[in-house]
């Protein structure tokens, strides 16, 4: 697989790969996709299902409620005055 393609994929996946990793994953992905070529000849089923079974729409009643106490969740995070702290956006 071309180096530029792997670089593009790694950037999208948020990985900073070393030279050694670039080489390894380029080779691995090339071998894997070479193997996957077998799918080109595979028969296709009718339709376009994203799940193996039909999944019905199940909606909860529109009643306000708290499933998990947000203050409990905040205990696991870096916070400032009960806001989650994150990295810079700009």
């Amino acid at each position: 697989m071309e180096r530029t393609t792997v670089e593009r994929v790694a950037r999208a996946a948020h990985f900073a790969l070393s030279e050694e990793e670039f080489e390894k994953y380029s080779k691995d992905l090339a071998e894997i996709f070479d193997y996957f070529k077998i799918l080109d000849e595979a028969p296709e089923g009718e339709g376009y299902g994203v799940n193996p079974l039909e999944v019905g729409d199940v909606l909860r009643d529109d009643v306000p409620g708290i499933f998990i106490d947000p203050y409990e969740l905040l205990k696991d995070m870096k916070t400032y005055e009960n806001y989650v702290r994150g990295p810079r956006l700009l």
Partner: peptide, 22 residues
């Protein structure tokens, strides 16, 4: 953020921060 390891430098730009962890 939110789960598990959170030892990063919050002064980083978000792309760099996420990339560092992953």
């Amino acid at each position: 953020m939110r789960y598990g390891q959170q030892d990063g430098d919050l002064s980083l730009k978000f792309d760099d921060y996420f990339t560092y962890f992953r």
